Simulated scan of single mutants.
Amino acid sequence: MKSRKFLIAGNWKMNKTASDGVDLIKDIVAAVGPQTEVDVAVCPPFTGLESASKALEGSAIKLGAQNMHPKASGAFTGEISAEMLRSLFASYVILGHSERRQYFGETDAFINEKVTAALKNLLKPILCIGETLQERESGKTLDVVKTQLEGGLAGVDASNAVNIVLAYEPVWAIGTGKVATTEQAQEVHAFIRGWLATRFDKAVAGKMRILYGGSMKPSNAPELLAQEDIDGGLIGGASLEAKSFVDLVKAAMSAG
């Protein structure tokens, strides 16, 4: 049995109105709300955070956001601060998602500012890393992952590192029809854990959770979650429907 508790986090992306989100949360809470064997989080769009926070009251499920700005306040139209997220009782925030890097030009340095700001405000970052198809086919996977780790975790000390969740998401396995094998996923997760042991120490590396974010579904979850260094999933499409998301939580309960 792993010493790390599994985390299943749902990234709704740009889906669900506030009322749709409440309906989804009610179904999830009814099925797995009281359980504490597995950590569970839902990450709605900004517009759904407040209603989601209220819908989660009394359950063990945590609230997460999909992004935030590193500054505390100011003239940053359309942005949201860590303090704003904390005021809604958010526990997690997804940072450096491949879509933020690809479509909005986010750099490792900017993502690192967000990681630092999140930690300062007692938010747990879910820091995403991963390679594109071109990088995978060029044999650069581990180099890309290492660069993103070095940049994203710059200046983070060991005492704060244990509050960070990493999510390995092979960009080429998201919405492409290509699927990473269990062996490919575990190989990168093991590399990440080894790098963390060098960057911090073995004890810290052993406590940090590394999620898989490449199209985890109820059908492939048991095999993925059985791997030594895979500690849960950052779930996209399968988090938008209660049954599939609940099935993933139950798969993690069984794997634990």
Rank of each mutant, 00 (worst) to 15 (best):
A9N: 00
N11F: 04
W12G: 12
M14A: 10
K16S: 14
K16Y: 09
A18P: 08
A18C: 11
D20W: 08
V22F: 04
D23H: 12
L24S: 11
I25R: 08
K26P: 00
A30T: 11
V32D: 07
V32W: 01
V38Q: 02
D39V: 03
D39C: 02
V40K: 02
V40Y: 10
V42G: 06
C43H: 02
P44N: 02
L49V: 05
S51K: 14
S51V: 13
A55H: 08
G58Y: 08
K62F: 12
K62D: 03
M68P: 12
P70M: 06
A72G: 09
A72I: 11
A75C: 09
F76C: 00
F76N: 06
T77P: 09
A82D: 03
M84T: 13
S91C: 10
I94F: 10
I94Q: 03
S98I: 06
Y103M: 02
F104I: 00
E106D: 13
E106N: 06
T107M: 09
A109H: 01
A109R: 03
I111H: 01
V115F: 05
T116I: 14
N121H: 14
L123I: 04
L123P: 12
P125Q: 11
I126Y: 10
I126M: 15
L127S: 09
C128A: 04
C128S: 01
E131C: 10
K140H: 09
K140D: 15
K140W: 13
T141C: 00
L142V: 15
V145N: 02
Q148A: 08
Q148E: 15
L149S: 14
A154Y: 03
A158Q: 05
A158C: 07
S159L: 11
V162M: 08
N163A: 13
V165S: 09
L166Y: 03
V171E: 06
W172M: 08
W172G: 03
K178T: 02
V179E: 10
A180I: 06
T181C: 07
E187C: 12
A190T: 07
G194I: 09
A197P: 09
T198V: 13
F200T: 11
F200D: 09
K202V: 05
K202A: 15
A203V: 13
V204R: 12
G206Y: 13
G206P: 12
M208S: 04
L211E: 10
S215A: 11
M216T: 13
S219W: 01
N220E: 02
N220V: 07
P222M: 12
A226T: 05
D229Y: 07
D229C: 13
I230L: 13
G232F: 04
G233W: 05
L234F: 07
G236H: 00
E241K: 14
D247Y: 03
L248I: 14
V249Q: 07
K250Y: 10
A251H: 00
M253L: 05
S254F: 13
